[in-house]
Design a protein around this nucleic acid. Structure first.
Lengths: 122, 122
DNA sequence: GGAATGCTGAAGCATTTGCTTCAGTATTGG
DNA sequence: CCAATACTGAAGCAAATGCTTCAGCATTCC
């Protein structure tokens, strides 16, 4: 299975439109920080912070040559995030299929209502 | 902020471990709000807020019968989010393939360095 | 009817986010 | 050497987040 914490970071990284656009651009190949910043109406400092977040989430790798830092996609983490969907898609797809053919099977009930006692301070 | 695309909302919804766990559970079928809250050590009010956010992101649908609100997964939006990965995966997969076979093709350069003039306050 | 159940809304609060500006450090080009 | 370039770091700030508590309001059970 996957680490929850890393999925937290990856989804959070992708929740920001600026960062998602950066990832989309990086899908075309490595780009320097300045070039990556060019399309956006924010300061270079802000972009630097986005790059740092993307890097610590594992979505990108960076390397500095001279004074230029080059950012590039790290495909593994992106694939990991995608797998989360795939693993759960099969669950509800199977379920929706059954709902189409027969209304309910005897081996899996629709969450029998539990006696949910208030779980607060015990 | 500017505009909240649905992808922003969906990824943000999935970035929280509590909400992601709720979505995972809902993949098994519809659940009431109380039953959904049971596994988590937070107040019912907090869960209600998560449910509301999940609903406004389009990830779930809810309906109230009597005093019980039932939450259920809305597969379409989940599929939309997954497609984002698929559409960009092809880009970097193709690229990595080419890097494996030949180092560089003449019709696509690795982002030729632009003369990036400072774009700040114009 | 009265109590328990299942939410729902509002207010408050500590923390995080996404930006800003300003000041710095290497590196590179003339 | 000197200036431009490409970041990098720190401080600060408004808004958003994720919780809390308390107070309601229907609905269902006894």
């Amino acid at each position: 299975m996957l680490q929850h914490s890393s999925l937290d970071q990856v989804f959070h990284a992708l929740a920001d439109p600026t960062r998602r656009a950066m990832v989309e651009r990086l899908a075309g190949g490595p780009v320097s920080v300045s070039d990556l910043a060019a399309p956006f109406p924010v300061s270079l400092s802000a972009i630097g912070q986005h790059v740092h977040l993307l890097e610590s989430s594992g979505l990108v790798r960076t390397s500095k040559v001279g004074r230029v830092r080059t950012v590039e996609l790290a495909p593994d983490v992106l694939a990991t995030a995608e797998q989360w969907f795939a693993s759960h898609r099969s669950r509800w797809e199977r379920r929706l299929d059954r709902l189409g053919s027969l209304l309910m099977e005897p081996d899996e009930e629709p969450e029998p209502p539990t006696k949910s006692r208030r779980r607060k301070k015990s």
